[in-house]
Write a protein that binds this DNA or RNA. Structure first.
Lengths: 225, 225
DNA sequence: CCAAGATTTGCCCAGCCGGTCAAATCGCCG
DNA sequence: CGGCGATTTGACCGGCTGGGCAAATCTTGG
């Protein structure tokens, strides 16, 4: 009956437990519930923010009672952290495509396309990150100044090598990446504004195509050698 | 569930009262307090979001007691709305510079510079709008689909006329505006990330200059006729 | 079928937070 | 100086929300 230890660090008793949440969850049904909860939490957190989201609301969205949700995730904060971690890789992954051996415009065009596709497929994830970072990244600052900075440094070096080889016009690589992030994520984060002003959003396939074409023109048009 | 304000039209009881808040506030000291409150509210709301902000925290930031703040603004929601309205013009104003009679690249360069300057001068205002829109603009949707859309339509027509005259390369005007908004505001909204990855932010004058130069290259470089 | 563990839920609670109110104080003007 | 409205605050309240608990129910290996 060792039900509830309040130790901050993960329990050392369980060796094989690399999962992000900390609930018991050994069986299939438990695993499925955890996924349901994380999906619901992403939806609600991204729509209302951490403080605006209610645990009971997330539980309802996951079709279970609030105490049942708390059975899988110790606290609201633990759930939020788990959602953030699960979404992190999805956010970082597209950067891998920026390979030094590729043609700069192939690689950058594909990166923009993939990021825009991510904004279309999962706008909630983009909004979650946006709100987290706007508020000072209280849960993500170690990741941002650690893993993210490391990856960006590497990719910036690649872009600089392209420039040094005369394969693209000189531009600060980091500002180029910022511009790509800002523009592609804009269509997810500010979807309401985009819809009001342009009359459509990325869920419309035609609009998605025209957006991609416009971004490629605007962002890469001036970088030909 | 957000509580929606029902007072769409301004109060008709007070003839000479174009102010956004609704407190008594006739004297100089009252007016000064209202300004102090609005400043404090902008800081706190932009840092913690509507739900994360505490009325007592705002009151403390304005150096007064909570009931005293509530004496000037009926409710937290009324205060939030007032802050939003006061910041709105500051956000919309730079668009005026896009004048059809000007040279396209002069006008667009200046617009980018002014927007970036706004991100440097008042990042809190930018963050406030960002969080509001990310969450679906529950307080701003009428403005966005009304005034903002109207202005954007007009400015898009101007850009299209520039294109028709062959003074700049063909590009969707709305996507160009989105890109300018997204990139310039990115340096305010995601300042934490920018600082972690690039080691500096707009408050550093040198970084500000290099950012502006990069944005002009990236955004406008490909639009020469 | 049974015991052990996993899961689920009804019930409860303590603390926080927005907002009220009456009383106290201040500032201004005749 | 006196009075009156503007301002300020301490004390308080009711509702909501995150979270705890133990009992009830379900699953599953043996």
């Amino acid at each position: 009956m060792e039900g509830h230890e309040v130790k901050a660090a993960g329990g050392a008793v369980e060796p094989a437990e690399g999962e992000s949440p900390a609930g018991p969850r050994k069986t299939r049904i438990g695993e499925a519930n955890a996924v349901r909860i994380l999906d619901a939490a992403l939806t609600v957190f991204s729509a209302y923010g951490y403080h605006g989201a209610r645990v009971e609301q997330i539980a309802a969205a996951a079709c279970m009672s609030k105490p049942n949700l708390l059975y899988y995730f110790r606290s609201k904060d633990a759930l939020y952290t788990a959602v953030l971690e699960r979404t992190l890789d999805m956010w970082l992954e597209p950067l891998r495509g920026l390979d030094a051996s590729r043609d700069p415009f192939d690689a950058l065009s594909e990166y923009i396309a993939v990021k825009l596709e991510a904004s279309r497929r999962d706008p909630a994830a983009s909004r979650l990150f946006a709100m987290e970072i706007i508020q000072g990244a209280p849960h993500l600052s170690p990741v941002i100044s650690g893993r993210l900075k490391c990856i960006v440094d590497a990719k910036a070096a690649i872009i600089e090598s392209w420039i040094a080889e005369g394969r693209m016009a000189p531009v600060d690589p980091r500002h180029l990446l910022f511009s790509i992030w800002a523009t592609t994520q804009h269509y997810a984060d500010f979807a309401v504004q985009v819809r009001a002003v342009a009359g459509s959003d990325l869920s419309d396939d035609d609009f998605h195509q025209r957006t991609l074409a416009s971004l490629l023109t605007i962002l890469l048009g001036g970088l030909r050698p």
